[in-house]
């Protein structure tokens, strides 16, 4: 069976670290940077477990600042 593989690209400067994408992610992919901050001082989101991403775009749908781009493909 073909397996969906996804990846997200977070616009780090636009991200406000609200944590909503982390809560919405069904596969536990995203997390907030524990130490690094962007220019505005927010702990931005990043892919902590990139291999688990299925490209469902749940994170991007709930993101209030539209800073997540989602890519999806099938693994052959």
């Amino acid at each position: 069976m073909a397996k969906f593989r996804g990846a997200v690209v977070v616009n780090e400067e636009r991200c406000k670290g609200c944590d909503l994408c982390v809560v919405a992610c069904p596969c536990d992919v995203l997390a907030l940077q524990p130490k690094e901050v962007n220019n505005r001082g927010y702990h931005f989101a990043y892919m902590q477990n990139p291999e688990k991403c299925i490209g469902c775009a749940s994170c991007a749908l709930v993101c209030p600042d539209a800073c997540i781009e989602v890519y999806k493909t099938t693994e052959k």
Binding site: A7, V9, A60, L61, E69, V70, Y71, T73
Partner: peptide
């Protein structure tokens, strides 16, 4: 995976 043709959102 991150290629323009795979972009869904």
């Amino acid at each position: 995976i991150i290629k323009p043709e795979n972009c869904v959102y």
